[in-house]
């Protein structure tokens, strides 16, 4: 009888212990208030651009180093410099460089670097996840849903469209020497270097 009682006691203690490790209680109103806090993507994007993206662009590989490596040893280039949040073959690279503008059209400027690499830089259509994902700083698990993550990419691109491109686009002309930093995407299964279009985060005409 005593033995059975001890058995039941141990079982109850075990069940209570497992329960205590399994559930927790909160006020529903507090949980809802926390959930209803709207994620401010533009503010997050501005802070991200200032404190993370721009510093990361300063330590990114030079175009004259990265593009030849992508051509000669893509495996090493992807392993060393590529980043990406999502499953799939699209990977993102940060890049910086200097060069002379050889052409300016409606959508892009073309820059010839010291190492004779021609880099295409977007100056009209700035979309996608390159600037968000290329530094590899943002962690998908820090966000409650993918919508917030998408909004960050859109907000960073908007800042570039509204604040980085207009002053540059109004002044740049063929023959200018410029400095640039940004990001681009490549499909690691079908590497096409001709498709590279840098989404800029920094564009400066050198005097």
């Amino acid at each position: 009888m005593l033995k059975q009682g001890i058995k039941y006691c141990i079982a109850i203690v075990l069940v209570l212990f497992v329960l205590s490790q399994s559930v927790y209680f909160k006020k529903l109103s507090d949980v809802k208030a926390a959930a209803n806090k709207v994620f401010n993507a533009p503010a997050y994007a501005r802070n991200y651009l200032k404190t993370q993206l721009l510093p990361a662009s300063k330590t990114s590989p030079d175009a004259d180093q990265l593009i030849p490596m992508l051509s000669s040893n893509p495996g090493k280039a992807f392993k060393t410099y590529a980043r990406g949040l999502a499953i799939g073959n699209i990977r993102y690279f940060m890049v910086q460089g200097k060069g002379q503008v050889t052409n300016v059209d409606e959508n892009d400027v073309y820059v010839l670097t010291a190492n004779k690499q021609t880099i295409k830089i977007a100056i009209e259509y700035v979309f996608g996840n390159a600037l968000r994902d290329a530094p590899g700083i943002i962690d998908i698990n820090d966000f409650a849903n993918t919508m917030d993550l998408n909004n960050i990419a859109a907000a960073v691109d908007k800042i570039v469209r509204d604040e980085v491109l207009p002053p540059f686009r109004s002044q740049v002309k063929k023959g200018d020497n410029i400095s640039f930093a940004g990001a681009f995407e490549l499909n690691q299964e079908h590497i096409n270097l001709a498709s590279i279009e840098v989404i800029p985060v920094l564009l400066k005409i050198d005097k």
Partner: peptide
Amino acid sequence: SNNLFVGFTLLG
């Protein structure tokens, strides 16, 4: 009705 939220740990 009780303004209660029951959260679950991974184990739970």
